[in-house]
Design a protein around this nucleic acid. Sequence first.
DNA 1: TCGTTTAATTGGACCGTTCCAATTAACAAA
DNA 2: TTTGTTAATTGGAACGGTCCAATTAAACGA
Lengths: 241, 241
Amino acid sequence: MADLVYQQVITDLNKRIMADEFANKKLPDERSLSEQYQVSRSSIKRALNVLANQGLIFKKRGSGTFINPLYLKNQSSFKYEGTNLGITDSLNTEGAKPSIQLLDFKVVPASQELQQDLFLTADEFVYEIKRLRLLDDQPFMIESGYIPIKLVPELNRQVVSGSIFNYVQETLNAAVTKSFLSISADSSNDNDQQLLQLKPTEPVGVMSGIFFLDDGTPFEVSNMRLHYQYMKYTTFVSTNS
Amino acid sequence: MADLVYQQVITDLNKRIMADEFANKKLPDERSLSEQYQVSRSSIKRALNVLANQGLIFKKRGSGTFINPLYLKNQSSFKYEGTNLGITDSLNTEGAKPSIQLLDFKVVPASQELQQDLFLTADEFVYEIKRLRLLDDQPFMIESGYIPIKLVPELNRQVVSGSIFNYVQETLNAAVTKSFLSISADSSNDNDQQLLQLKPTEPVGVMSGIFFLDDGTPFEVSNMRLHYQYMKYTTFVSTNS
DNA sequence: TCGTTTAATTGGACCGTTCCAATTAACAAA
DNA sequence: TTTGTTAATTGGAACGGTCCAATTAAACGA
């Protein structure tokens, strides 16, 4: 994680910024940083671009590079800081203990939509995994996942009761690092209300998507219905990537 | 938009991919592309990186660059394709005519939170702009925006009844290109139900954030409550940016 | 003092190269 | 044919350089 030059620069600059080392909210110019870190200006630029895309700094040609004082307020329920995109590692638990309750686990034929999303033919099968996720015994997410059996032939109840992505990373040596993610809202249905302890007027947040392995293989189609108070997705949007 | 070398490569590759020119789902290697386009491999890499971060292609060292066949399904309510992040230009209207109904427009002292988010002092003022957005006369979003008066001293009811970001872009020559965005869900309150024509059990999607000018100046704090059927935020998440 | 012109600063785009790591293909040996 | 080794392919990281554009600072003249 930290053997790359530009990654090291990122890490160090992050520290220095958080330590308020740049009191005037302005970073040294790129040529000076290049000198300081004894790396090429290209690597400095690469590091600064990453930070800029996170909203931590703003760059202004002719003027300089400035720290965004509002970066701190950026606290989401999801962090995406681990080595994969699994909920287990991405969730901002804030001290609460996460747990998983397995609701259902079986093998079913791939529906038409699943065939399309997971590159399967009509005669192939998928695991159907329904789980309830909790934080300190408070349920907050109903998760329905579909994974081709051919990708993980040896999935069992025990594995599925824990972090599937971490299991895959250890056994198959393939990380789940990318996904299409769609976020929406919906009224709670009877099942939601019962499992998530919601009143009929209280809604759920919906996060659904397709998760990919690093090589682009679609690994899982997932549908997550969250207690509305637990869904907060925060991001930094920039048009000039 | 298209005078930059790597942008041109992006545009052209996009076309070729959409035209299904690469039937085997594999792009030429970077060195060949460099030759084809008569640009450096660095520029090719830059272009491919953008496409990879959009989820359009996957790159695999030693193997090649491959097209993601699932990219098409990626249709969001929001596109972020214009020159700024305004709703007016970002909304996927699908043929419906967008309109704005001005609910309230006044100048108020900046609250403590607004002072912090917009870099204001206690004696400064902000516009408070409440608007209802519609698509073909169907209301779908209640928008509450707060903009420092010092940034746009001449805002009036007519401007505020249209696209504020476009107005700013034309008059101040400053584009709104970046924002922190937070997405969540909430039960609908009386006001929501009345304005958005919702039943008590039907929820709203909430999108709130801070919008910045290109130079990093916080321009607007916005709170948007959407009819739940109109909120669909789709994105591509990748851990190795 | 004020406004204008000129120079210095600073990030942006792009080039072309070197070395490397992961993967795949080719080849040779059993 | 199968298996193990070697070579070629392909993307990744990093360097260091050129030229440019936006901005700011300095110098200058009225």
